[in-house]
Structure formats: structure tokens, C-alpha cells
């Protein structure tokens, strides 16, 4: 099925068969090595594993890791200490007002009208953009 002559570099004329990597010869792989199965972890799990690993270190090393050595956790930027500014949730302009009820920020009375007539749930979608939505559990 695969075309006999491989396409030239930079060519846009090639098929799934040419591109498929499973069939390409891979002589460089170590034939005696067996890959462990299922090595999938999402980033949350990776981070919590890292936290566990550091906590299980011997005391001296742990203190060093927490204080001096950069770890994934302690290089994370801290929360801001400058006063927060508010911007209109819909337009992004200056927002001197706050909608009672859902807490959306808005620019002027025209935007107020828009917010008032938003379909149900859309206000929460706007708030979700800045993680201020109400999450029901």
C-alpha cells in the first residue's frame, strides 16, 4: 500500500502511510529493553508525588530542599501584594461598579443593561474567566 518512492523533503504530497511512524525502521532502539507499561500521570499527580517525595526525605535534606533548593513548588510565583485593579468583565474597560447578586464588574450603565439581560448561566461563564464563578459541589 505504501508508496514505493518516499516523498521528498518539504513536499506537501504525502499520505498517512508515508507519515506513519509505527512502520518506520528504528534500529537505534535497545532491543533488550522492555518499556514499562502505563506511564501516564496528570500534572496534579506529578506535583503531589513530588511533594510526598520531599516530605519523605531525611530531615536535613528536607530542610535544604524547602529552603535553598529550588523545587517545582517553591519557584511558583507568590500571590501579588499590589492592590488589585478591577476591569469590566464584558468589555475589559475600567470597571468602577460591581453587580450585586453575581459580583460581575462593569463599565457603565449600558453594560449594566447587558449584564442584566444575560441568559441564565452566562454570567457564571464570564466569572469563570477570572475563576470567580460559583462552583456547586
Amino acid at each position: 500500500m505504501a508508496s514505493t518512492t518516499p516523498p521528498s523533503s518539504g513536499s506537501a504530497q504525502f499520505t498517512l502511510f508515508d507519515a506513519d511512524i509505527t512502520m518506520a525502521p528504528k534500529p537505534f532502539r535497545n532491543p533488550s529493553h522492555k518499556t514499562p507499561t502505563r506511564r501516564i500521570k496528570n500534572s496534579k499527580q506529578i506535583v503531589s508525588d513530588e511533594i510526598k517525595r520531599i516530605q519523605s526525605l531525611p530531615d536535613e535534606a528536607r530542610t535544604a530542599a524547602l529552603v535553598d533548593t529550588p523545587t517545582y513548588m517553591n519557584v511558583e510565583a507568590p500571590p501579588s501584594v499590589v492592590p488589585r485593579k478591577w476591569w469590566c468583565d464584558i468589555t475589559g474597560l475600567k470597571a468602577p461598579y460591581r453587580m450585586p447578586g453575581n459580583g460581575m464588574r462593569y463599565h457603565n450603565k449600558e453594560i449594566y443593561e447587558v449584564i442584566k439581560h444575560l441568559p441564565p448561566g452566562v454570567d457564571q461563564q464570564y466569572l469563570q474567566l477570572r475563576s470567580a464563578n460559583v462552583v456547586l459541589r
Partner: peptide, 13 residues
């Protein structure tokens, strides 16, 4: 970063 709901300091800070 607060614009996008991220509780971190901005790059200038």
C-alpha cells in the same frame, strides 16, 4: 494575572 483569575504576582512585580 488577576485578570484571568490567577493568584500570582505579575512579571513586573
Amino acid at each position: 494575572p488577576s485578570i484571568a483569575g490567577i493568584d500570582q504576582a505579575g512579571i513586573v512585580e
